[in-house]
């Protein structure tokens, strides 16, 4: 059984605590900040889901935003157009994204890295084409407007209350990732990434796991899409088109193949647009520069960099204790 270190537990507890009291510090009525907090949640889920796929299993996806879009649109169509209750609607979009993820999984079993990257990119283009052209269903280029706020038993959720729902869902996804990673399944994922042939010869059903991880990761992205729809109440294809690069930046900058990495990445990169408001026009380029710098100088991201710093310090501490 994997044992979590005491310091790690403390860090997690402090992070969750800060996340929970944040709305009260910033003001529960301050929609600007609350919206940023909620964006951490859905981007965090997205980054974790991408990390599971790319960081752990080594399957490159360049169109992960598409699953977020499908999740969001499915939720919007089910609740507004068909008048479903929000719970079955979320469930419905999870199922749909899971199944479409399996479809990509089918491709990942058959194709090598670059071919798969191409397929996922193409898939996301197709999704945005459908969204733009099928206006009767999706609102087309004008976007999908008027998604209802979260309402339970007649109680309409305030934005900060929605944040707690989103936070709870994020923690749930984090827990699922944690359990998957530190288990037989997670070991299989990593084995597949490092040496697929050896993995197969150790009894791992390589294609089965690739197939499944695509589904799981897509469903997580779908959930993020639902939260997005609930928060913004408006959907349009180009937001999701752009989010693919943003997500990749978050995952890479935070550190792929580690549990904390994507969360750190989300917090850092998610805050950038707010800090760089005057340069909003050049934001994509800034992401680009950041990505390249991180890949060049911090191959394991911020998390990996911090970890090796701490390890080094620990080692020198031990050395200084040993040598008088």
């Amino acid at each position: 059984m994997h044992k979590t270190k005491r310091e790690t537990k403390i860090v997690i507890f402090v992070m969750v605590f800060i996340a929970a009291v944040m709305p009260f510090i910033l003001g529960t009525k301050n929609n600007y900040f609350i919206n940023i907090l909620i964006s951490y949640c859905y981007y965090g889920i997205m980054a974790m889901s991408l990390n599971l796929l790319v960081g752990y299993t080594g399957q490159i996806s360049l169109g992960h935003g598409a699953f977020m879009a499908i999740g969001g649109y499915t939720y919007a169509i089910l609740t507004k157009t068909l008048g479903w209750h929000f719970l079955p609607a979320i469930f419905g979009s999870l199922v749909l994204t899971f199944l479409l993820g399996l479809l990509i999984g089918l491709a990942s079993c058959k194709l090598h890295a670059i071919f798969l990257a191409m397929t996922t990119l193409g898939f996301s283009k197709v999704v945005s084409l459908i969204i733009i052209n099928e206006g009767w269903l999706t609102g087309g280029a004008n976007g999908f407007v008027g998604i209802k706020k979260l309402t339970v038993f007649g109680h309409r959720f305030m934005n900060y209350q929605l944040y707690f729902v989103a936070l709870a869902l994020t923690l749930m996804v984090a827990l699922i990732c944690y359990r998957l990673i530190y288990s037989k399944t997670g070991r299989a994922f990593q084995a597949i990434r490092t040496a697929p042939i050896a993995a197969a010869s150790m009894g791992i059903n390589v294609n089965g796991y690739k197939f499944l991880v695509c589904g799981i990761s897509a469903a997580m992205a779908g959930l993020a899409g639902c939260i997005y729809a609930l928060n913004i109440n408006y959907l349009s294809a180009d937001i999701f088109d752009k989010s693919s690069i943003l997500l990749l930046t978050m995952t890479v900058v935070g550190g792929m193949g580690s549990l904390f990495g994507p969360i750190i990445g989300t917090l850092v990169i998610g805050t950038l647009p707010e800090l760089l408001r005057p340069f909003a026009e050049y934001l994509d380029g800034i992401y680009g520069v950041v990505i390249i710098l991180v890949v060049l100088f911090m191959p394991h991201g911020i998390y990996g960099g911090m970890k090796s710093l701490i390890d080094r310090k620990r080692k020198s501490d031990i050395l200084s204790e040993v040598t008088p």
Partner: peptide, 20 residues
């Protein structure tokens, strides 16, 4: 993977340079 990601980042860097 790192190389691939670097080229993806480069795409946006060049676009932005052209824009500037």
């Amino acid at each position: 993977m790192g190389l691939l990601i670097s080229t993806l980042g480069m795409q946006y860097v060049i676009q932005t340079i052209a824009k500037i």
